[in-house]
Design a protein around this nucleic acid. Structure first.
Lengths: 212, 212
DNA sequence: TAGATAAGTACACCAAGTGCAGAACTATTC
DNA sequence: GAATAGTTCTGCACTTGGTGTACTTATCTA
């Protein structure tokens, strides 16, 4: 009756429940603000018990930020998957620029209403910003390892390079977020965003001494 | 009876109360761990009501991290106060190296028992790490402004330089913290710490392209 | 269809943090 | 130096995030 590749009913139900909870949460948060909605209200809206909600998401913050979890190790993956004879930094720059072109939400350059609302929610809520920073730390660790494994740079250099790169990517994304929040469209912002990214990566490559 | 410069009894009492609460908190936290001590117990140990405790410190985390608040704008101050014809990055490097020599706790290179214990407490407690990151964001903003005000670098460059610098300083301090936590003494660590810092700042100045 | 196993629920509980009304204290003024 | 105005502190009730537990209900397997 069920094909061999399809997960069982149990797994499908779990996924549906998980989505129901997350959707209810984000809808309510966007509507009324993170602190103005209680987890009890979310559980009620998703038609599950509070206890079940916490079985799927360990904290209230995770109801929102779990959607970003995939991106945690993105930079590390890009470095590992880069073509031979390509410098890590070049691969990362190209990937970021491609993200801008594709309007990847992670670059801050996506102005679709749902994504914009989610972004604003996060940036208006200190507790959520804090939580995002934890992903950043994880991303730094993963990138450091990727650099160590795929280049012959000493560990200190890998660590420093990695924190610099993540910091710059983060700052570029933040800048784009802010512009979009203040009303600019993604298409209008794109040319400057791309130029900024190119300059920022050039700065990473060539060093701060070049600007006095 | 009181000299004109001395604050009134009320102010002095406030300061004493504040110190009593903070001291009680840190003593208990170090003894038993952040999550194993409730604010009610801290209030009791400091002989104030829970309500008074929250009048002085807005959250449980602030009981610990308020001691770091002064350092938030340290980098910005260093840049603003640097001698004429000195590059910001040089001033910051010299300041960091001087911090290492002085065993400034902020560099992670102080192994006095009290400071070591406090450091370990923070790094063992995710909630406290999160809170520390908020200082970092403030430090980045302040440094960006300082760079804009005292150099003719465009704002994008100032922003990127600032997040890179703060990221590197943070990573260097973390490295020192970890070494000391794993048993090394500050004096034993010092030579490597200084060399690492010099290399890291050189990397900032010369760029990542220099290392493939 | 029986029974093992996993998911979900109800309920009681703890801790962080807030609002409020009044008590205790400090500063000021006559 | 007593009245009083202004702060700080307290006690208490309350909300909310999060956990432990014993129990029910649903899915899977044989």
């Amino acid at each position: 009756m069920t094909t061999e590749s399809r997960p069982g009913l149990r797994e499908r139900k779990k996924q549906r429940t998980r989505d129901a909870i997350s959707d209810a949460a984000i809808t309510l948060f966007v509507e009324r603000g993170f602190n103005e909605v209680s987890v009890a209200q979310i559980a009620e809206a998703a038609e599950v018990s509070k206890r079940t909600l916490f079985a799927y998401f360990p904290t209230k913050e995770d109801l929102v930020v779990h959607r970003m979890a995939d991106h945690e190790t993105e930079s590390a993956r890009v470095v590992r998957a880069r073509p031979a004879h390509t410098a890590p930094l070049d691969a990362l720059r190209d990937h970021f620029l491609d993200g801008l072109r594709r309007r990847d939400p992670i670059t801050g350059l996506n102005d679709m209403p749902q994504i914009r609302e989610l972004t604003q929610l996060i940036f208006r809520t200190p507790a959520l910003i804090d939580r995002m920073q934890r992903f950043r730390a994880g991303g730094e660790r993963a990138l450091t390892e990727a650099l160590c494994d795929t280049t012959d740079a000493p560990e200190l250099v890998a660590r420093m390079a990695s924190v610099q790169i993540i910091a710059v990517q983060w700052a570029l994304s933040m800048e784009n977020f802010e512009r979009l929040i203040s009303g600019e469209t993604a298409d209008a912002r794109y040319p400057d965003a791309a130029r900024s990214a190119e300059r920022a990566f050039a700065l990473l490559a060539n060093g701060l001494a070049t600007v006095g």
